[in-house]
Simulated assay, not measured.
Amino acid sequence: MASARILEDDTTQDVDRSDDDYERWLTEAIRAVDADAVRSADTHLLRFPLPPEWNIDLYLKDESTHPTGSLKHRLARSLFLYGLVNGWIRPGLPVIEASSGSTAVSEAYFARLIGVPFIAVVPRTTSAEKTRLIEFEGGQLHFVDDPRTVYVESARLAAETGGHFIDQFTYAERATDWRGNNNVADSIFTQMRAERHPVPSWIVTTAGTGGTSATIGRYTRYTRRDTRICVADPENSCFFDGWSTADAGVSCDTPSRIEGIGRPRMEPSFVAGVIDRMMKVPDAASIAAIQELAARTGRRAGGSTGTGLWAAFRIIAEMRARGESGSVLTLLCDSGDRYTDRYYSDTWLAQQGIQTASYRELIADLLD
């Protein structure tokens, strides 16, 4: 028979690495991560109170309502799916991440969901509440004194343990499907459809990895929307300088006080070409913005939300000065409950020399 003759030939080289046990584990792991997205309702779109006669609307996409309490839940899900389908995450071996907190909280959740160990490499200055949440989700903490060493230390641990360095700072911009599939941009425009200005004039994001601005910027171009992207950067971060000078080699030696955003180097996931505008926001202005948010809406948010909100206020002031109408949208990245010992602590603010009164007066002058 012809089939027997071809099987008798011994000149073909053949290596078969298929593993039925691993394939069954992989199928179940992908199902479990995918099911999390199906179980989770979409996050809310909140309106910030502005005078109606301005004909300008301000929205906050409230990402704090995810199961792990932050915008990073979407990123962690995408990174785990990306690592699984590429064969990088293996049963019994740890997933390791360089993270200042929120990404690690979400990744610890997904690691526990599929039954693998998780190690978070975090700066020693990370807030106590975030480190508590990482451990609550089943993660293990590995502290470093110099925040700039989180990358090399994560890679070293991965090599030492045989685990996978999931590396949000490299893969954030590619792990998420920017064309849609209920990513944050797709969700925003779906929820905006019934508003009086359904296509935002501006969407304001902040940058930790750069993945969110990359996803939203690519999506708005792909769907041909007339929306511009502004990225707000805190003090002690190099993104603004690198973007404005087109220098990918810039660095910053002082760590950001606004947790979750601001980086000491231009991260690989930061896609400069999709960004229309950047603002460098003083830390005191970021914290003043979340103080005003709490006072006017009753919602307490983290400092990164304040950085984006301050930039949104400036854009709205410009629109008013030009007599324009439209909508502006920014992100409520996580809850202020994670930062009660920092941004909502008079003691911490005094220790840092941060005074917010003058910035709150500027916000009040705009809004009142």
Score class of each variant (00 low, 15 high):
Thr27Tyr: 08
Glu23Tyr: 05
Val33Arg: 03
Thr12Trp: 07
Arg31Met: 05
Gln13Lys: 13
Arg39Thr: 11
Ala37His: 02
Asp21Trp: 06
Asp36Pro: 00
Arg24His: 14
Ser18Arg: 05
Trp25Met: 02
Asp14Gly: 05
Asp21Gly: 13
Asp34Met: 01
Arg31Tyr: 06
Glu28Val: 03
Val38Gly: 05
Leu45Thr: 03
Thr43Phe: 04
Asp42Lys: 00
Ala37Arg: 01
Val15Met: 12
Ser40Thr: 03
Asp14Thr: 08
Ala35Lys: 03
Glu23Lys: 07
Arg31Leu: 13
Leu26Ala: 07
Val38Tyr: 02
Asp19Gln: 07
Arg39Ile: 08
Ser18Cys: 06
Ile30Lys: 01
Ser40Asn: 05
Val15Leu: 11
His44Cys: 05
Gln13Val: 11
Gln13Asn: 11
Tyr22His: 12
Leu26Glu: 11
Leu45Phe: 04
Val33Cys: 06
Ser18Gly: 12
Thr43Pro: 00
Asp10Lys: 15
Asp14Tyr: 11
Asp21Thr: 15
Ala29Met: 04
Asp34His: 06
Ser18Met: 14
Asp16Gln: 09
Asp36Met: 05
Val15Ala: 10
Gln13Ile: 11
Val15Pro: 08
Arg17Thr: 05
Leu46Ile: 03
Ala41Leu: 10
Asp34Ala: 03
Ala41Thr: 08
Asp34Lys: 15
Ile30Leu: 13
Ser40Asp: 00
Tyr22Gln: 11
Ser18Trp: 01
Arg24Pro: 14
Arg24Trp: 08
Thr12Ser: 09
Asp42Tyr: 01
His44Pro: 02
Glu28Gly: 14
Asp36Asn: 02
Asp10Phe: 00
Arg17Leu: 15
Asp21Met: 15
